[in-house]
Amino acid sequence: MQKLTQIITLSVALTVVSGCSYVGVYKRDIPQGNLVTQEMVSQLEPGMSQEQVTYVMGKPLLEAPFDASQWDYVFRLDQAYGDVEQRRVTLTFDPQGRLANIEQEGDFSAPLLLDGESSIGPAAEGIDPLDALPEESTQTPIPPSEQPVSQP
């Protein structure tokens, strides 16, 4: 009986240590597509040219291959320990290339929390990740009027 208990204990221990879902795994948020915010969409107005729309929104993720009058801006955020958030803006242009219609899908009222902009990734345990950053130079640059001039 004691040998059976040892075998079961060893089997359970190996299962937990082998990488099953009982042990935590590092996950990252995965943003994909064009970043689309409410501020960007609020700048769009019917009658804008395609160049003006590109200036505000950037190049579209999807253009209809046979009809360039519809542009789709899709943003998808797969949160590591949460849900998937998707935003989509579909812009339709008239034959003269002017913005005619704006359609939105998704929740644009909630702010997007993209941690990748401020974090530098996972660090080893016990190490401050900010210590790994290169230090900025504290020396002040010499103005051009005070730099030494070499004479031929």
Rank of each mutant, 00 (worst) to 15 (best):
Q2R: 07
L4H: 04
T5I: 12
T5D: 04
I7T: 10
T9D: 02
T9M: 02
L14M: 10
L14R: 01
T15Q: 04
V16N: 00
V16H: 00
S18H: 03
S18W: 09
G19E: 05
G19N: 07
C20H: 05
S21I: 13
Y22A: 13
G24N: 08
G24V: 01
V25C: 07
V25E: 14
K27A: 11
I30N: 10
P31I: 03
Q32H: 10
N34F: 02
T37D: 01
T37Q: 03
T37G: 06
T37V: 11
M40G: 01
V41F: 03
V41Q: 01
L44P: 00
E45C: 05
E45L: 08
E45I: 09
E45Y: 13
P46Q: 15
P46W: 11
M48E: 00
S49D: 12
S49R: 09
E51G: 12
E51V: 09
Q52I: 01
V56P: 01
G58R: 05
G58H: 06
P60Y: 00
P60F: 00
P60E: 01
L61V: 11
L61N: 02
L62G: 01
E63D: 06
E63Q: 12
F66P: 00
S69H: 02
S69G: 04
W71L: 03
Y73N: 00
D78R: 13
Y81I: 14
G82H: 06
G82F: 09
G82E: 09
D83F: 15
D83C: 12
D83H: 15
V84Y: 06
E85P: 02
Q86G: 09
Q86F: 12
R87Q: 05
R87G: 03
F93D: 01
D94T: 06
P95F: 05
G106T: 05
G106R: 00
G106K: 02
D107G: 08
P111H: 08
L114H: 02
D115V: 08
S118A: 07
I120D: 04
P122N: 06
A123E: 11
I127T: 14
I127C: 08
D128S: 07
P129W: 06
A132H: 14
E136Q: 12
S137Q: 08
T138N: 14
T138I: 13
Q139L: 13
P141Y: 03
I142E: 06
I142L: 13
P143K: 03
P144H: 06
P144A: 12
P144S: 10
P144T: 09
E146H: 11
Q147D: 12
P148D: 04
S150T: 11
Q151K: 15
Q151I: 15
P152Q: 15
P152M: 12
P152R: 12
